[in-house]
Amino acid sequence: MFRFLNLTLNGLTNGMIYAAVALALVMIWRATRIVNFAQGGMLMFTTFIAWDLAQVHHANYWVALVVAVVAGILIGGVAERVLVRPVENGPPLNAVIVTLGLLIFLQALAGMIWGNSQAHSYPPAFRFIGYKVGDRTLRFSPNDLFIVLSVLVVVIALYVLFQRTSLGLQMRATAFNPEVAGLLGVRVGRLLTLGWALAAGLGALVGVLVAGTSSGYVTPVGPFDALLIYGFTAAVIGGLDSPGGAVVGGVVLGLILSYADSYISNFIQTMYALVVLIAVLMIRPKGIFSRTSERRV
């Protein structure tokens, strides 16, 4: 029972992280119909900025976090304007290749600036030693609680932004039908940029959160790549058009991976993700939370 509790808490924490990445991917998908494969690279890069501030220049944890998020917003906005805009209406595969190119570029740039040879550890925000229950220690720490809560807060904030503000209404309108939205006076281009910027900012937050866990190291290539895959899997499970689905998909994936890791084998983690994905898609080809399937003819 103690083991099951541990696995559940562990799965929940990881799941919230996958959920946040999934949400970032869904935001970009809704805005520009592009799956952003550079998401992992972008959040790796901003995490390195935070690491440089916190560990090299001894900045305060929160200052480093804020700078990383701001840097993420800038990188996301610039990437959309400069790289993605020209391929937005082209063949969809070209956009995939452009985001892959950006991913590779960011990995190389990070390697040039900070080097590939060392794995850098990153300070957690709070104590990373687990809570005590009786004489036993949970695999769940104040820092893990912080991760869960911060993602939750961001998800709620985004929900409010999309559902309760006029900016959110415009963004939803743009996602639904850019041409009509444009005719109605919505400045579509600006909103697309904003969508990318917000998503990249969210990614930056995730990067810093993950770096401070006991399985996170900051390196140009490595742990952050897996984040994109799990995030994408979570988004597809939920349905790429559904922000709520992304969050549910993330948590479900986190829990399943955690249980399977322990009860079956921890060498085939990505295999579980594949199995879950295929199982869901065979039943619901457009994810759990897809609306009635419409096919563009």
């Binding site: 799956v35 899997t233 085939i268 295999m271 993700a273 594949l274 295929i278 080809p285 994810g287």
Partner: peptide, 17 residues
């Protein structure tokens, strides 16, 4: 994108087998 996602997971999952 759903097919893209499934094949991506395949490329990532199979090598762990």
């Amino acid at each position: 994108p759903y097919l893209a996602g499934a094949t991506l997971a395949l490329a990532l999952g199979l090598p762990t087998l």
